[in-house]
Every structure is written in structure tokens, then in C-alpha cells.
Amino acid sequence: MSEPISLILDDGRNIAIIVGTIITLLTLIKGVYEYTRQVAQKRSEQYAEMRKRFRESKTFPKLLDLLEENDPKLAKLPWSEKVELLGFYEDVALMVYSGIMKRHVAFYMFAYYALRCWDSEYFWHDVNRNSSYWSLFRHFVEDMKAIEDSFVFRIKNYRL
């Protein structure tokens, strides 16, 4: 009689271990899922903040219009306005290289004018483009040019 009770206790212990392991595994999976959602939400918030900053700037619309045409008036714009735009793009670059924003999202949403800016001699009239202070911007532009040169739209690349 004692053997069957022992087997029942062993089976009960094994079942409890299996159930406990399953519950632990499900809790871990749910935790990873929630963490992933929170990271995506943070990325989304930071992207929205950058987009808002880009759209609501008082300085950028005039600069962007001039960059679109590579207008000679760019050479006469105040240095501070140019530096504000360069600083914005360096902030985008920092987000990309920190893993906060994906490269393809930065390319698709922000790179167009960064590339126009880099190519405009008028824009750089009174700003030293070769200064070490613009190294991050220069690297960002090179990175964005590489994406532009091989661009193929794939929806999976555009998730926050």
C-alpha cells in the first residue's frame, strides 16, 4: 500500500513542478512582451517629439524652402539659423546611433533636407563643414546617402 501512495506523491510533485515551470515561463514571456511594448511606446514618443520640433520650428520653413532650390540667399542667412538646423539633424543622428530611432525611419522622415543641406555650397558659406564639430552630422549624411543610393521601400523597415 505504501508504494502507490509514494507514486501518487511523486506524480503530484512532478505535476506541481511542471505547472510552476509553465507559469514562470508564461510570466517571463508576458514580461518580455510588455517591455517590448514600452520600448516601442518610448520610441514613438521620442519620434513624435522630433517630428513636432521639425514642424513647429520658426526657422526651418524658410531654410527648407531655400534648400529645396539651393537658393543663393542661403549664404546670407544668419549663422545661428543654420546651426539650429544642423543641431536638429545631429539630435536625429544621436537618436539613430543610440538605437532610439531606426535608420530607415530617420532616412524616410528627416534625411531629405539633411542631404540638400550637405550639398549646398551656399548653406556652408559661413559655416566650416569640415570642422570636427560637424563630424556627427557628416557621418549621418554619409549614412543617409548610402540608404538613398540603395533605397528599396520595405514596410518592415518602418516601425518605431
Rank of each mutant, 00 (worst) to 15 (best):
L74K: 04
R51M: 05
F54V: 04
I17R: 14
L77K: 14
R51D: 08
S131P: 03
L63C: 02
E84I: 11
A16T: 10
A106V: 01
L64D: 01
K52W: 06
S132V: 09
I8V: 10
D10S: 10
Y35E: 07
V39W: 05
D143N: 15
K73N: 08
L67F: 00
T59Y: 02
S120Q: 05
G31Y: 11
P61G: 06
W124M: 03
I22F: 10
E69T: 13
A16S: 13
L9D: 08
G12K: 12
T24Y: 11
L77T: 15
F140E: 02
Y133S: 15
D149V: 08
D65L: 12
N157C: 08
L160M: 14
E69L: 07
L115Q: 06
I23W: 01
S57E: 01
E34N: 12
D91A: 12
R55K: 10
A106W: 01
P72R: 00
A111H: 03
V19A: 15
R43V: 04
Y158D: 07
Q38W: 08
Y108H: 12
L63H: 00
F110Y: 07
L67R: 02
E90M: 15
V96M: 04
L26A: 14
W79P: 05
R129W: 04
D126C: 05
R37G: 12
R37D: 08
F137L: 07
M101N: 05
M1P: 10
M101G: 06
W118T: 03
E49T: 13
V39T: 07
Y108I: 07
I22Y: 09
E121Y: 05
L67I: 01
D71I: 01
G20K: 04
N130P: 03
A106I: 02
G31I: 09
E3A: 12
D126L: 06
F153Q: 06
V141H: 00
G31C: 09
F110C: 04
R53T: 08
Y89Q: 01
K102T: 11
H125W: 07
L26Q: 11
T24M: 11
L9A: 14
E69D: 13
M101I: 15
I100Q: 11
L94T: 11
V32F: 11
F153T: 10
E148P: 08
L160N: 06
S132L: 10
S98N: 14
D11Q: 10
Y122I: 02
F137D: 02
Y89H: 14
L7V: 11
R55N: 09
W118R: 02
A75L: 04
R138A: 07
Y122V: 00
I8T: 08
S131F: 05
Y113P: 01
F54N: 01
C117P: 00
A114T: 02
E34G: 05
L67A: 00
N70R: 03
M95F: 11
L136V: 09
N130C: 09
I18S: 13
D71R: 02
Y97W: 12
A93I: 02
V32W: 10
V141Y: 00
E142D: 15
R103Q: 15
L66N: 00
A93C: 09
K82N: 13
L9Y: 10
D126P: 05
A48Q: 12
V105C: 06
T24H: 09
I15E: 14
C117A: 07
Y113M: 01
T24V: 15
F88A: 03
M109L: 11
W79R: 14
M95K: 06
L28Q: 09
D143H: 13
I29D: 08
K52D: 06
L160F: 13
G12T: 12
D143M: 12
E69N: 13
E45D: 10
K145W: 06
